[in-house]
Amino acid sequence: MSFIKIINLPIIAMLGLVQLTSAQEAFHNFGDIQIHDTGKIGFHTDLINDGVFNSNLGLAGFYGEDQLTVSGTSIAEFYNSEIDILDGLNLKTSMGVYNTLDFINGKVFTPRTDLDISLDFLQANYNGESDFEHVDGYAALFGDIDFTFPIGDEDKLRPLSISKPSSISTFKSAYFYEDPNSPTIFATLFDTNSFAPILSKVNDKEFWDLDGDQAVEVTLTWDLDSDIKNLTDDIELLRVVGWNNKTLRWDSLGRNDVSGDLEEGDITSISFVPDDYEVLTIASEPSGNDFTINTGFSPNGDGLNDHFEITGLDLSQENSIEVYDRWGELVYEKQNYDNTWGGISENSITVDKGIVVPVGTYYFILKLKDKVTNKVKTYRGWVYINY
């Protein structure tokens, strides 16, 4: 018979009906349970929560060798929790943690086909993540903190990090160690041969799903299995990319930072809204460019990074640039650009002419005529404007 271990019973308040049966092999809550600040409860059996179990302090742990399941009509939310189950914890309904989750042994599994079910970190943190201890499926953040999702696929931890959003928001993420050209659960095929001209090659080994409606910077990671050397031999040419369902191609989301080597490292994008892209991965830009595009600037008049700068324009015989907002409206254009645009709109469609455009991500098209070959090359990308 399965059993539940309860420690410090007097500081666990139980109201209503709780049932433990060998037939169900589950701890079934129909009522109202509360773990007080020094309370500890240990589950060695499945948890079915059809009552109230969300005003907890103390610790709730899940223990054993065989896989356990959390299910029911209501979400169980714990203050501290720990997972020590060799075969892992299977979530059939979401489970939340307010303070700290400790991965001791085993993974937390969520159904990748149901984004409504996730392991939820409610402004919480975690410890102990590894290739064998992580969330295999979707993890969620509800909060306004810098956060790294402890996600992976089978025995492979591949975290994704986001910067602090501007307000308390919900983000969900999962990692897929599979070819984006033939994903297992998405209806869309993310063609790695369809990408913006500014890119040269898109990773076909893996991708991430990230959902959220607030602009954030995103950091992706790679390891030896990512085969980054197949994209480039210079990690400075790597870019975060997102699949655009409107244009049906991979768009560059820039690079604010990159570190590591061809075998292991991480790359951080410019700020963007994750919901604008279905999935994310890593790509490369062509080598041999003699110019550098600044992917972000702040036209606030402080004399630092006040203009959209492209280093090396003098190497081109002539050039032209167009800048569009997220709705596709032209906000700036110039022949023979000279690095002087300070974010001022040149039309009155989405913002008054002569006014600095709002904070956000803008799309640019840059055309350069080579001095030697006289051929025109077109580059497309994104620039983030902040103050």
Rank of each mutant, 00 (worst) to 15 (best):
I4D: 08
I7Y: 09
I7C: 12
L9C: 09
L9P: 11
G16V: 04
L17P: 07
Q24S: 15
H28N: 12
H28E: 08
I33V: 15
I35E: 09
D37N: 13
G42K: 15
H44D: 09
H44M: 12
I48R: 12
N49E: 01
N49T: 02
L59G: 07
L59V: 13
F62H: 00
E65L: 06
S74E: 14
E77V: 09
F78E: 00
S81Q: 15
D84I: 00
D87W: 00
G88M: 10
G88S: 11
L89R: 00
N90M: 12
M95K: 12
V97T: 10
Y98M: 13
T110Y: 02
R112Q: 11
I117M: 00
D120Q: 12
F121K: 01
Q123M: 10
N125K: 12
Y126P: 00
N127T: 11
S130G: 12
S130N: 08
V135Q: 00
V135I: 08
D144F: 03
D146L: 14
F147L: 11
F149P: 02
P150W: 06
E154Y: 04
K156V: 05
K164S: 14
P165I: 08
T170V: 07
S173L: 03
N181E: 10
P183G: 03
L189V: 07
D191K: 08
N193G: 09
N193M: 08
L199W: 01
S200Y: 05
V202K: 12
N203F: 01
F207N: 04
W208Q: 07
W208G: 04
L210F: 07
N230I: 02
D234W: 05
L237M: 11
L238M: 04
W243F: 09
N245M: 12
D251I: 03
S252Y: 02
S259C: 05
D266R: 13
T268D: 10
V279H: 01
T281C: 01
S284Q: 04
S284Y: 00
P286N: 13
T292V: 15
T292Q: 15
N294G: 06
T295P: 14
G296P: 06
F297V: 03
N305Q: 11
N305M: 05
D314E: 10
E318P: 06
L330K: 15
K334G: 06
N336H: 08
N339Q: 02
G342M: 10
G343N: 02
S345M: 09
S348Y: 05
T350C: 07
D352S: 14
K353D: 11
V356A: 13
P358V: 01
P358R: 10
T361P: 03
Y363D: 11
F364R: 07
L366W: 05
L368F: 06
V372Q: 15
R380M: 10
G381W: 01
G381T: 04
Y384R: 14
